[in-house]
Structure formats: structure tokens, C-alpha cells
Design a protein around this nucleic acid. Structure first.
Length: 303
DNA sequence: AACTGCTCCAACCGCCCTAAG
DNA sequence: TCTTAGGGCGGTTGGAGCAGT
């Protein structure tokens, strides 16, 4: 029943990675590609948990990672995206090529938070600090602050009389990161030290992943399709495709400017999110597609 | 030189969702 | 249908490095 454990925790290293471990991981992925993290440590000769290998690769060793300080443009984009998405670091990272969710999360906590506070803006709500303080004082009496896209407290919002904010469908279309290679090359997932049965099961699993990947991405596999759309709910209530929005701190929130934008959206019935993310108007029209009232931003990986 | 306090970030932890069995 | 593991994600922590005293 179920699957066997990913690793024996008693026989795995913890803590900082050595140069030798890094090199082993790089060498292995260079030859075999990403994916099959469970079998990777054994196959690569690493005394690490697969999860740890995955993290090390994604956050530090990946060749496409951008090193160095964040630019002013990146700062502003992060702030903008955070105001719309909340603490959805992986989604934010998806809009910043070469940056990881962990890196952005750290940068947010160490730099941007302070920067916003110095500007007199609450980093969580993206509203003026004094306004936030006043809101907090009255919050107990008036239930949820109405100027938030609070997915979890949707019923509480609807119970109050605040109708100033339009209701939204905030839909994340599936992130399709085609650079991800789940055992894409035949035979990549064979690992040493396994029994024949285990190896066959592992290969079976990996081949299934390959097939799923091919089914999902029938084209050349180089396109990066990061879709994020926002539109008006016909039912007039807030809903979300973010089923995993489970943290209170990750509730997307909107500032005053974004509400002006949303009011305009009420009239226009459909809006392009790219505009809110700081792209030029000309860029919107080139890249966005209007489908069923939702504008979707599409951008190829190599652009 | 030694100590203290602070900042930064890599790595870990724990949870959730999905899919295997 | 249920249990369990894999993969992914957000939150937290520990230690290295630096500045100030």
C-alpha cells in the first residue's frame, strides 16, 4: 500500500552543502536532467534527502539563476505583484526570470518590507500605515476590512454592508513551466543500488511522467506559459482557483489604486492584468488574449 | 582582540494537494 | 475508497559575516 519512503532519514546529511556535494548534484542533473528526486540522491551518490537535493538545485545551483542585487524595476514589480497576490512567492517568482521564490521571500522580508514602511505603507495591506492602524482599531467592530480580496473570509465580507469593492473572479490559470523536465529522457531514472523490481517500478513511474509531460506540452517544449487572469464574477461574489491559499498571511490584497483599477474593470467587464503589473500599454495588446472576458498574458520563454 | 548586536540568506520544517497502490 | 508518499510551497531558523563598541 502506498509508496516506499523517499529516503532513510537516519543516513542522510543535513546542513550546509559542500562543494563536492554540489558538484555531484550538478554533474548528475547535467547528464540525466531534473526530476525523479526520490531516486536522485542514491543515483548521484549523495547522502541527502531527495527533497533537499531538489531545494539545493532550484534555489542555488540552477544555471539560469540570476545572481546579484535586485534592480529597482524588480523591486517595484515585486511590490506590485505582492499587492495582488499576497505571499504567493512561487507565483511572484514566475514573473521574475532567474529569481527563486526563496530568494524573493528573503528579499521581501529583509529589504522591501523596510522600504515600504519607510514610505509609510503597510507591507501586508499595501495601504498607508496610519490608515491600517485606524482600520485595526475598528476592525473588531466592523468585522473584515472590506478593501481586501479575502478569499477565506468571503462569507464574512458578504455579510457586511461594504459593497464599495467589486466582486471578482481571481483565476490562476495553470502555470505551465515547460522548462521543467520530469524524466524527459528515456532511461534517465534508472538508479544503481535498486532491486530489479524497484527499478522497474521507478522506470514505469518515470515513463508515465514523461508521457504526461508530452501530453500536456505537445509542442517543442521551450515555451513558458505563465497565465494569470482577472475578471468580473457574474455571480457577484469572490471566488478563486487558489485552493491552496491556506495561510492567513497569503491573502491577496488590493490597495487604493488597484481599487480604482477594479472600478474601471466593473465598467469594462474585462481587464488586462499586465497593465497593473507595470507593462507598457503597447505590450498588453501584443501579448494578451481575450478569452471569455478574461485577458490572459502570454509570454514565450525566450522573450 | 574580544564581545555584542544586527543583517542576511541557505536550509530545514511542516503542511497541503495529488496521485500511486 | 482509503492510506500513504512525492512534490511543492510558505514560514521559520541557525549560523556566517559584518559593524560598532
Amino acid at each position: 500500500m502506498g509508496r516506499s519512503p523517499c529516503c532513510e532519514k537516519a543516513h542522510t546529511n543535513k546542513g550546509a552543502w559542500t562543494k563536492e556535494e554540489d558538484q555531484r548534484l550538478i554533474d548528475y542533473i547535467r547528464v540525466h536532467g531534473e526530476g525523479c528526486w526520490r531516486s536522485l540522491p542514491k543515483a548521484a551518490g549523495l547522502l541527502r534527502c531527495g527533497k533537499s537535493c531538489r531545494l539545493r538545485w532550484i534555489n542555488y545551483l540552477r544555471p539560469d539563476l540570476k545572481r546579484g542585487n535586485f534592480t529597482e524595476e524588480e523591486d517595484e514589480l515585486i511590490i506590485k505583484l505582492h499587492s495582488l497576490l499576497g505571499n504567493k512567492w512561487s507565483l511572484i517568482a514566475g514573473r521574475l526570470p532567474g529569481r527563486t521564490d526563496n530568494e524573493i521571500k528573503n528579499y521581501w522580508n529583509t529589504h522591501i518590507k523596510r522600504k515600504l514602511i519607510s514610505r509609510g505603507i503597510d507591507p501586508q495591506t499595501h495601504r498607508p500605515l496610519n490608515e491600517t492602524a485606524n482600520t485595526n482599531n475598528t476592525a473588531k467592530a466592523t468585522a473584515t476590512v472590506p478593501t481586501k480580496l479575502d478569499f477565506k473570509n468571503e462569507t464574512r465580507v458578504s455579510k457586511t454592508n461594504f459593497i464599495t469593492a467589486p466582486s471578482l473572479d481571481f483565476t490562476y490559470n495553470e502555470f505551465q513551466v515547460k522548462a521543467k523536465t520530469e524524466c524527459l529522457e528515456e532511461g534517465n531514472c534508472t538508479s544503481s543500488g535498486m532491486t530489479t523490481d524497484e527499478e522497474q517500478q521507478q522506470q514505469h513511474h518515470c515513463h508515465r511522467l514523461q508521457q504526461q509531460h508530452k501530453d500536456k506540452y505537445p509542442s517543442n517544449g521551450q515555451e513558458l506559459n505563465l497565465e494569470l487572469s482577472i475578471g468580473i464574477s457574474s455571480a457577484g461574489k469572490i471566488s478563486t482557483g487558489l485552493s491552496s491559499a491556506n495561510s492567513a498571511q497569503s491573502k491577496p490584497q488590493l490597495d487604493n489604486n488597484n481599487y480604482q483599477f477594479l472600478e474601471q474593470a466593473m465598467v469594462a467587464k474585462a481587464v488586462c492584468l499586465c497593465w497593473q503589473l507595470g507593462f507598457q500599454r503597447s505590450e498588453i495588446c501584443r501579448n494578451c488574449q481575450n478569452t471569455n472576458g478574461f485577458y490572459r498574458y502570454r509570454r514565450p520563454l525566450d522573450s
